[in-house]
Write a protein that binds this DNA or RNA. Structure first.
Length: 482
RNA sequence: GGCGCCAUCGUCAAGUGGUUAAGACACCGCCCUUUCACGGCGGGUUCGUGGGUUCAAAUCCCGCUGGCGUCACCA
């Protein structure tokens, strides 16, 4: 048995951002390689000079890095199959295209850039130059006429290839156009360059989106023309977005974020994003859903890939992210959360680590934090009716009683720690003879102006600080006494 | 439009001829509770449709419908 080492590649074009679908493609390529002790290659497909975006390559690398998808070979990393940027491989493609011409599988086309149109409809290239005579070709060449190189497609028959997720796929050859291999500017087209590179880089498994299924027969024909072995194809179903009306369509801006970095900006953890994205279109054999990258690399297999499109679901991402928060230390959380928190009160800034202990389990993404802690900075306007609580049997009279006693005890507080504050509050409960809930409810309202807060009353007192806390309680007492 | 791919709860999905059709998220209800959260328990006409094949179909075949993709000197 011949053991060939698995080699996969991620081959993005440098457009300046990383679509979530692309990220997933990269992730699967990486995971599959790692799961098989293989090699993961990053290759930049920048053969379209018109679409050149400065710094895009750098951006791709930073994104992969942030997502912990680390290539073994690629630009700046090196490897035996470089260069890994297609624009630097121009001569290679040229050479192979010439080889194809010699073998009779390709030809020079001197036709105008403008497509021949019939009634305004483009009917495809008319193969005008497919059978030019030697003399005609020589004449054009001597005249220095620019040309492209086209693939000479079989006119009849069918081409079949095997896809790991879809099985055999067959297409009629007469569907195939004599596609351009080398453009007028000397650059190869995607359809040519990827075949040359995948072969030269010994890629064993081509993992890419379904949008390439229909062009795969052209690639297969190319492999056959060269006499090269055909790699294994793995075409991934797309990631969709949900529209307002319930329909789905390709994930785009109107669905929210479309790229990895936008998700990060929204306050999701890179690890959580990759974890969630991995589950969109792949399922492990077990019921496990939370995975570290290493765990995924261990269990990833192609059989788990699904054939049908998956809809990106923020609710589930929120859950995954929340689970990651729960596993984080308060310290790590506090550091990562700080940039999202906005301006803090002096007290809150000093006690940020403590506050994060409360926030960490109550938030599913960092960007929820500002709203959640806004009341620390500014007591919201609230209605005295808020003090009323049926379940805890809180009336305005009870609220006033509680607040009064709490203010008195808190003003006399010798210290201001969660521990001492808890003792004081227990004292208030005992002193008023009320149930815990009846005491805490009006306290929370007065301290925060809201029914829902991160943490309990003791925590709020502590985070507000003595001066501010007492001021708010007095304000509440006044309000409830009117 | 031609060609190709796809079709299991709202969403992600398991499932490969015989299952009470898993599990997760979300949702609803209840319990617990110092609100929220956490936790616990419980709930839901789910196999697009019409035909076959078979003793038996979510699973196999065909048509239909719907979604997606592709038909560039883009990738």
């Amino acid at each position: 048995m011949i053991l060939t080492k698995v080699r996969t590649r991620f081959a993005p074009s440098p457009t300046g951002y990383m679509h979530i679908g692309n990220l997933r493609t990269a992730l699967y390529g990486y995971l599959f390689a790692k799961a098989n002790d293989g090699t993961f290659i990053l290759r930049i497909e920048d053969t379209d000079r018109a679409r050149f975006v400065p710094d895009a390559v750098d951006f791709i690398k930073r994104t992969l890095d942030a997502a912990h998808i680390i290539p073994d070979e690629g630009p700046d990393i090196g490897g035996d199959c470089g260069p890994y940027v297609q624009s630097e491989r121009q001569e290679i493609y040229k050479k192979y295209a010439e080889e194809l011409i010699e073998k009779g599988f390709a030809y020079r086309c001197f036709c105008d850039t403008e497509h021949p149109h019939e009634n305004g409809e483009y009917k495809g290239y008319d193969r005008h130059c497919r059978d030019l005579s030697e003399e005609e070709i020589k004449a054009h060449l001597d005249a220095g006429d620019p040309y492209v190189i086209r693939q000479k497609m079989p006119l009849t028959g069918t081409t079949t290839f095997h896809d790991v997720v879809h099985g055999n796929i067959t297409i009629n050859n007469d569907e195939l156009e004599d596609q351009v291999l080398i453009k007028r500017d000397g650059m190869p087209t995607y359809n040519f360059a990827n075949v040359i590179d995948d072969h030269l880089m010994s890629v064993t498994h081509i993992i890419r989106g379904t949008e390439f299924i229909t062009s795969t027969p052209k690639h297969v024909l190319l492999y056959e023309s060269f006499g090269w072995s055909i790699p294994t194809f793995v075409h991934l179903a797309p990631v969709m977005g949900k529209n307002e009306d319930g329909s789905v369509s390709k994930l785009s801006k109107r669905h929210g974020a479309t790229s990895f970095s936008e998700l990060v900006d929204m306050g999701y953890l890179p690890e959580a994003i990759t974890n969630y994205v991995a589950l969109l279109g792949w399922s492990p054999k077990s019921n496990q859903e939370l995975f570290t990258m290493d765990e995924m690399a261990e269990v990833f297999s192609l059989e788990g890939l699904s054939k049908s499109q998956a809809v990106f679901d923020y609710a589930k991402l929120d859950w995954v992210n929340g689970e990651y928060f729960k596993k984080m230390s308060d310290f790590d959380f506090s550091k990562a959360a700080r940039p999202f928190a906005g301006e803090l009160t002096e007290e809150l800034d000093k006690k940020w680590l403590y506050a994060c202990g409360l926030l960490r389990t109550r938030v599913s993404r960092f960007s929820e934090i500002p709203d959640m802690i806004h009341f620390f900075r500014e007591l919201p306007e609230y209605d005295a009716e808020l003090f009323l609580n049926k379940r805890n049997k809180v009336t305005k009279e009870i609220a006033a009683q509680v607040l009064e006693m709490a203010i008195r005890d808190l003003e006399a507080a010798p210290g201001w720690t969660p521990y001492s504050l808890d003792a004081i509050m227990q004292g208030v409960v005992a002193g008023t003879q009320l149930k815990m809930g009846a005491v805490m409810w009006p306290m929370r309202i007065a301290l925060s102006g809201q029914k829902v807060t991160p943490g309990g009353v003791t925590e709020l007192l502590y985070l507000l600080g003595q001066e501010e806390a007492i001021e708010r309680l007095k304000k509440g007492l006044k309000k409830v006494s009117e």
